[in-house]
Design a binder for these strands. Structure first.
Lengths: 244, 244
DNA sequence: CGATATGTTGATGGTCCTCAAGACCCGTGG
DNA sequence: CCACGGGTCTTGAGGACCATCAACATATCG
């Protein structure tokens, strides 16, 4: 494996891609150096502040993107304004919907986000030539499907307390792509979204979210500094609450 | 296209596959006649009664399947028994989870079901050779993901009445693979599952489901014979209720 | 024709939503 | 430095919706 495909001419790897997480674990890992180079010609790296709308619901899709840092939220809105977040994407996830003209969800930066953006057409074309690309996309899609189904259980059957605990556990285990499943059983992180976002993710109101967070804090399951910084002294305990 | 790949030697198409929906719209459409033949050697068609467990949660996966008729439910159960149905599969859907040893959901026949069952190993091997297979799987996965997200909105933000209307609308538009989106604005069908299943799908109790069905019936939105046969005189109205 | 599973209806209560007020946070400008 | 203001978050009181418990009705099947 010392001669894996993307390392044949490492010096030819586009500068943009050198330090990119998506190249290693994301979909770009399926591309040869020359393919990477071709794609990168139409690619731009962009840093956007929290709240930026990337793709509107029912909007035509012109571009895809990879998340390099931060959190992107996918949401749906009903006619009367009720909103539900239907997915969160962390680095190095791929954001986009192949084989479809328009998006069925709204994609928005939940925190400050850096993205690698490329035209839909470029990747669509490349998918025909490089079958490994569809393979990677299939893997990610199946994982997202697993996540979505896990979350359906949370939305449909868990209590408010369990929901909030589930959310905190999700963030604790996903926010930091580096320290993977660092088996320290302890985590500290900043919540990447507002109480309103959390409520929309959990199918609750902000008041209920706030109350449950307070409850978990008073029970010693979590510690909080300011309103965003969370410390979890015992992740196993949090997980136990999340699962009833 | 008069010489499309699977018609080159139509007489060589396995008997099993001749009348199969999955061959036309399902994943088998990606296979050449000879590949179809090879796969079919390890394939069995099976008819199972409602309630049959196909794959247990956290169970090792040995086989995949195509749904030929009926409805398969995918569900998750919590330690204390709370249950959530996280997906319904109709003909000609593919049932299975590539790239994973064990299943994260339980697959069970919701109604009487006919399946086309084949070994995981056979299809896994074929996926390497026939890239069109991964393409089809990717398409289905993305569609399932869209469905799952649509349902997350239902679970998280809709009222009991809207949930039940959403479910009836889903069944009305998916149960009959033939008459596709027959723009008659009228539908008649048998519910393929019990009230308990419906409740588990909607994140409600059977009592609430029953009450909401009664309410829709008294409002003239649906008509019911026995407990299972439903007639929807105005699908648009049902959909309007489902969406608030 | 009874037996069991499935479905309906009613009474009551708990969980979470709604409405409302106040506390905290943070950047801006006096 | 502090006052101000808007956004965010917390806390409280009351109410709506759906769950729970219970009884009964209906369907299904040996």
């Amino acid at each position: 494996m010392s001669e894996s495909r993307q390392d044949i001419h490492n010096s030819d790897v586009p500068t943009l891609c050198r330090a990119c997480e998506a190249r290693h674990n994301g979909i770009c890992g399926a591309l040869r150096t020359d393919e990477l180079l071709r794609l990168s010609r139409h690619t731009t790296s962009r840093r956007v502040p929290a709240g930026t709308e990337l793709v509107g619901e029912a909007e035509n899709i012109e571009t895809y993107a990879n998340v390099l840092s931060g959190v992107v939220k996918l949401s749906k809105v009903m006619a009367d304004g009720r909103q539900q977040i239907v997915g969160l994407q962390f680095a190095p996830d791929f954001v986009g919907r192949p084989f479809q003209e328009s998006s069925k969800v709204c994609a928005e930066a939940a925190s400050d986000v850096t993205l690698c953006i490329f035209p839909k057409r470029s990747l669509d074309a490349m998918m025909v030539e490089a079958p490994g690309l569809e393979h990677r996309l299939l893997r990610q899609s199946l994982n997202e499907l697993d996540d979505a189904r896990e979350w359906m259980l949370t939305l449909g059957r868990k209590t408010a307390e369990e929901k909030v605990a589930s959310f905190l556990h999700l963030i604790a285990t996903h926010i930091d792509p580096e320290k993977q499943v660092a088996r320290t059983n302890r985590a500290a992180f900043d919540l990447p979204m507002t109480r309103a976002d959390i409520a929309d993710f959990l199918g609750l109101t902000i008041e209920t979210v706030s109350r449950q967070i307070t409850k978990l804090r008073k029970a010693g399951v979590i510690e909080i500094e300011g309103t965003r910084h969370v410390t979890v002294p015992d992740i196993a305990e949090l997980e136990a609450i999340a699962n009833g």
